[in-house]
Amino acid sequence: MKTIAVINLKGGVAKTTTAANMATLLGTKYQKNVLLIDNDPQGNASQFFDCYRKDEKCGAAKILDRERPGIFTDVAAGVDLINANMTLLEADNELRTSEDRQDNRFAEYMEKAASIYDYCIIDNPPAILICTINALCAADEVIIPVRLDNWSIDGVEVITEQIETLKALNSNLKIAGILLTDYKKSIENEAAEEWLRKNCKYNVFSRRIRHSDKAVSATYYKQPLETYSPRSAAATDYRKFMEEYTGTKKA
């Protein structure tokens, strides 16, 4: 099983949109068994797939507490989901004060899930919490969505430094690449992209995810882009991105 952490320390860069659409494309186009873990106390991925349960201890919190998480099966073709809500933050805070090892709870769970799934995608919060560290310690690869503005570009250096530090705990962890999201053609964006591609020491994926109003509308209707608007710019770009990422072209 390949485990992919989707992360950026800045909000509003399409982390959840990227995680959700990667998962659904892997399930539908690539016929893979996928586990999507919502690791953000805000629970956006859980809400997107109608798995948000405000008054119940969420699955991600149970993983931190070494309990068996509930799994929402078939939230999309080939995709199961472990949900999140604010109880994840409570579990996170409690784990911080524990004298036990704190960074290996997700890795322990992944060992159990590895025989069931081909891919695990973890949607992370825009903060380095204990649950974030757990995700990165369990991941094989990291994808960093970036929206081209000054603050996001600055944030790339911060998050990549954090990831490099965590390699002391997870020597297999690598940064798969930077994914440009919500891209609008402008002089400023072209300049920012050129600078990033020249100066970033990590891979910047060739495929950009263009801005699309359909991407916003899809969140209201709680449908992946591939279902809601497969001909939209963003849907097309996510398909092309997955071809680039997997190295496999799909019709």
Rank of each mutant, 00 (worst) to 15 (best):
I7D: 00
T160C: 12
E161F: 07
T227V: 14
S212N: 06
F241P: 02
A139S: 15
Y220S: 15
A127P: 01
A218P: 03
A19G: 01
L95E: 07
T87W: 02
K240D: 14
T248Q: 15
A23I: 09
K250Y: 10
T24N: 07
V156H: 03
A61E: 13
A215G: 13
K32T: 03
A192T: 00
T132H: 07
G12E: 09
N33M: 10
R53S: 12
C51A: 15
R66I: 11
K32I: 10
K57H: 00
N170I: 12
P224T: 06
A191T: 15
T165R: 13
I71Y: 07
Q31V: 01
K249L: 08
N33A: 06
K249I: 14
D237W: 06
E111Q: 14
T248M: 13
L136C: 10
R66A: 13
I116S: 06
L179K: 11
K62R: 15
T132V: 04
G12V: 03
Y183E: 04
T236F: 09
I82Q: 01
V216D: 05
S171G: 07
S212P: 01
N124Y: 02
P69H: 14
A60R: 02
G70I: 01
A233V: 12
K62M: 11
K10C: 05
D213F: 00
P230G: 10
C200G: 02
E157Y: 14
G78M: 09
L166A: 05
E193S: 13
C131E: 13
